[in-house]
Every structure is written in C-alpha cells, then in structure tokens.
Design a protein around this nucleic acid. Sequence first.
DNA 1: GAGTTAACGTAAAACGTTTTACTAAATTCA
DNA 2: TGAATTTAGTAAAACGTTTTACGTTAACTC
Lengths: 334, 334
Amino acid sequence: MKTLSIKDIAVQANVSITTVSFIINGKAKEKSISEAVIEKVEKIIEESGYKPNQIARSLRTGNSNIIGLIIEDISNSFFSRIARLIEDKAYKRGYKIIYSSTENSVEKAKELINMFKSRKVDAYIISPIKGIEEDINMLLTDNKPVILFDRNLPDVDTNYVGADHFNASYQSIESFIKQGKKNIALVTTDIDVQQITERYEGYKKALEDNGIAYSDDLVVKVHFNQEEAETISQIKTLLESKKIDAVLFATNYLAISGLKVLKQINKKIGDDFAVIAYDDHEAFELHTPSISTVQQPLEEIAETVIKLILSQLSSKTKLENQQVIIPAKLIIRN
Amino acid sequence: MKTLSIKDIAVQANVSITTVSFIINGKAKEKSISEAVIEKVEKIIEESGYKPNQIARSLRTGNSNIIGLIIEDISNSFFSRIARLIEDKAYKRGYKIIYSSTENSVEKAKELINMFKSRKVDAYIISPIKGIEEDINMLLTDNKPVILFDRNLPDVDTNYVGADHFNASYQSIESFIKQGKKNIALVTTDIDVQQITERYEGYKKALEDNGIAYSDDLVVKVHFNQEEAETISQIKTLLESKKIDAVLFATNYLAISGLKVLKQINKKIGDDFAVIAYDDHEAFELHTPSISTVQQPLEEIAETVIKLILSQLSSKTKLENQQVIIPAKLIIRN
DNA sequence: GAGTTAACGTAAAACGTTTTACTAAATTCA
DNA sequence: TGAATTTAGTAAAACGTTTTACGTTAACTC
C-alpha cells in the first residue's frame, strides 16, 4: 500500500497541489480559498488518513519541529526525570524531542551535534562537557537556539539554566556546622564541569567562612568513568581512616556508592555522623535512616528551558542571552 | 554561513554531483571512478567539513537510519536503563534512536507511531499497550520491522522479546513457600498488559501447585495512573489488616511505595515477614535489610532486540517472526 | 580498421513538500 | 463603461540528495 502524498489528495479533490498545501497549513483564508473547497479537501484528508511527509516538509522549510536534547546518560535518574519533563512540555507545544547520551565523551558529543545538525533540528538543549565549545559556537553562528542546562561552559556565550550549585553546597556544609560537625568530608568527581566545581567551591567557602581549615585529606575526587568497585574502595578508605563526622556527596550516584560503603563497614548515620547527598533519589527517602538531600528544581529547570527555547524560536530577532540560576532546596531528613 | 551542499563540492572538484554522490556512498569502485578523482573529492570533503543533508537523503531513499523506540515512561528506571542499552548498541551499528514516552495513553501512543511514520523511521521498538494493535498492524503491512518488548500483544503477529514473567513470579512464590510462608500477598496494578497478567498467573499457579488456597483478599491491584498517596494507602490497608507473612510486588515502583508503607507502620522485614520486588532498583540493595528482587535480563533483552531489528533490516525477504523469552533471575538478598 | 568492450563519467528524473509569482474571472469604483 | 481591485486559484521552482540510463573515449579483438 503506497502511502498517500499531497498529490493524491489534490487529484482526488480536483484542485492543485498548492491549494491542498495552503489548506493543510492553515493559510487557506489568507490565500482566499473558498469555504467549499476547504471543506471538500479537509474531508478527503480526514477520510483518507493522509499525513504530510515530514521529511519533505523539512527539506523544503529547513526546520523540523524537533528539538535535540543532549545529556550525559539517560539511565541516570536526574537526567531521565528531566528528559521526561522536557519531553512532556515540548510535546504540549507541538515539538518533539530527540535525545541521546554522550557518556561524557567529547567525540560522541560532537558526533551527536553533527547528527542533529544534519537532521535539521530546530534547537538544542545540551548538558555540555568541556571540549565542545567550538561545535556549540558553530550552532550559534548558524543562528540555532542553544540552551545549556545543568552545566555551563564559560567560553560559550549562550543561554544557561541551572541550579545554584554553589549556594546549595554552601548551605549543606553550613547545616553540618550548625549541628556541631568539625570534620566534614566531600566526595566528588574529577570531571571538569562547572556544576561540580561550584559544589566544591561552596564547600570550601562555607568552611572558610566558619573558621574551619580546609584539608585536602577530607576531599575525595573519584575518577569519572571508573568501575563502581573502585569508587567504593576509595570512599571506604576515606571513611575508615579519618575521624570524619559528616560527608557531602556531590552527586547521587556517589552517595549511593557511599551508602553501600557504610553498609559494608557497618558505620551508622546518626548523631555523630551525618550525610547529605546532592540530587535526590528514591533510595534516599527509603533509606534507614532517611538521607538528607539537595533537591534540584527539576520542574522549574525543564519549564525554563522550554520557555527560553520557544521564545527564541518564535522571535525573529536574536534575543538577549539569559543565565537563569534557580535555587536548589536542602531537604533535611531524619 | 550557508551550509555546504553536494553541489558545492562538485563545483569545487570540477566533477558532477553524481560522481560526488558515488564517492560519498562508497560506490566509486563499482561505478569505476578513477583513483585520482576519488582522492581529490575526498580531500575537498574532508577539508570543507561537508556533511550530507540527511533529510534530503531520507526523502530520496525513503529510509533514515533511525529506529523509533516507544516506551511507557523514560523516567522509570527499568525503561531508562534499557533505553540506554538499546541506544548504545544501535549507535555502534550506525543507527540512531528516537524515543518517546506514551505514559500509557493509547492516544499518545498512536500519535507517536504516526510521528515516527512521517519521519520515516526504519524500524520500531515498542513496549506496547492494548489499543494500538491496528496501528502496529499497519506498520507491518508497510513492511516495517516491529519488535515488541517487555509486553506482548496477542493480536499482533510480530517479534517479541521479554522476560519469562510467569516463571519468575512462580519461583518467587515458591521461594516464599519454601521459607514456610502461608499467607502470601501480591501487590500489582490493574493495567491490562501481558507481563502483568503473567506475573499474576505465576502467583496463582505457584499457590495452587503447593496446595495453598488463592484468596482475593491477598491481592491488591492498584490503579495505574493514580497518585502515589492513594497507592500507599491501599497497600497500607492490605498490610495492616491481614496476617500476611510475605509480599510479592509486581513492579519496582509498587515495591518502593510498599517500602514506604512498611517504614510508616514500622513493620520490619525479617524472619516472619518477607518481601520480593519485581524489577531491580538501586534502592533495594541499599535498603536495610536488602530487598530480594527479580532481575530482568536487561542486557540480553536489549541485545536481542537490536539483533532482531538488524537482521530484519538487512534481509530482503520477510523473516519468520520470533518470540524470545529470556529467563529472569531471582536474587535473594538478606 | 571495423566492431566490441571497458573505463570513466554525467544529465536528469525523482522523492513530497512549500512558496513565489502569476493568471483569469468577478466585482467594485468613479 | 472601462479601469482598478479583489477573489480564487495554479504552475513551477526550489530544497539536497540518489539513481537510472545514457555518453564519450580509448583500448582490445580478429
């Protein structure tokens, strides 16, 4: 069964292809097509189930109603939840999302950008990594809207939406200090992205402002792509060897590894040992005792990202770039 | 900066568009293009960074090197993990994935199929819901490869890959019985999809085979799209009112709600109360005590799905449909 | 040295739309 | 009434590829 084309509709309705096209695209009035013809054509379209070929459409118009979403890893719950929200909101506005994961590989990220480019996606939502600045700048000179989220790139002049990582981290540490903690550790990763460094800076600043000396010994930076076993052993070394009374985990998967360590070495969270995890996770509320956490405002981030995209897509002129920093929320559980 | 087209390359190389196209598509030898020309053209392509317009390509060839993935909800960790695996494997074979979530809505599922159709995706991977049988059958008459996974549709004659839900459920219940449990509850959902009914059937059969009477009182079917609060209250009613010594949760999110209930009512998992959750989740290993679980073979499912797709895409003739059932693994933790 | 074949390549149609520029008839205007 | 305008619609180019069918030469065969 050959799929229908606009031509088939035109022939059946005994009008020109142009007329059908105008009707499909809601330009019938403006192009003064008579009510009678409009109805006839619409009826035929309805009955035949004709759907325009989007590929042909894209080729002609140069756009696709598709937004490309590039994230680190869809199986990470932070990203999958935000992807779902973005997808949802975009969908309601008539846009579809194509997503792909970079796995923190510069090459894969570049390839993805190229793929999206040759598919003529209308706009890009990217949680970026260092090393793709040039590629992003090319998109910008192409006049494609680009929204970075979660992480910013200093050398790229575009829109950014993210949580206030510095303050969230700062407040977490302050809350430890208010509880009387003195030996506060940080477990973070060595990927060189802004949101991670901000969390680190917040940690340092909070210590400093409260007159506690910073010590390299209390900070573990696990290597990004390593096996979990390795991460666990690093964290174990930290927790076993030092007289630590509080730990901030800079990502949720680090916290999960950390909790596994605590279980192994049978160290209990309680009055003399506190934990906060960055990025919430279902496991944290359920844990006994419940784990305090920094919740990123997923809903607001998704909403802001989509709003920025849409305003750019609908505006003829280049809009001013925006940097939207949304406060994160420290949830103290116990 | 206008993006380059094949024509620009042809002009620069002083050859015809056809020649450039042959070279790009590796048909140069076959079409007897001289080595000198090949080299010249390739050099120009390399230096200019020219990338073929995939849209034009798709329009002409009718395919896209894109596989459509339709799942229930990307933010559910079962789906996001499998999506990641499928994406990965497809990517290595030169295919891209477009995914979208149906949220268990028949309309949205139909819309997605239509969208994918008008984007000319080469093949479909679908975790289906009842009500889209016809739409899928249309794809099949269009000769598009369709692989169902996780859930099967009895009225659709195509490929299916999934875990052995019946046996997994059966074994779970048997393991309870071996531990001496007598009052075994099942918490499941009311969506009418095969894998859920199979889990239910496995539960019933295991009881029967072991001479335990089935009782409707011990089965809770929560309504699919309801608020979690409602689910929690239903489960609470079950666990508080009955003398239950074991529970099988038919999905991981039900188990998570269940664990919240246990925490609330302060019921402990231990010698006289056992729990098994279907589909693993990070929270389960971490939980105190750890939660036993039925692990679906994600890796094998993803691999099988991709293999089936690729063999269909590369075969000229219609292949025999395959139903691949992969055993799930019961992980007893404590 | 005429006929074949191989080597090297190209022109042009086709994919299914959108959109620009146009026409013919009907209506309005002064 | 004749010119101007409006109404109702269309022909054809363009988007960037792939692919079919077709040229030229030059070399080979006998």
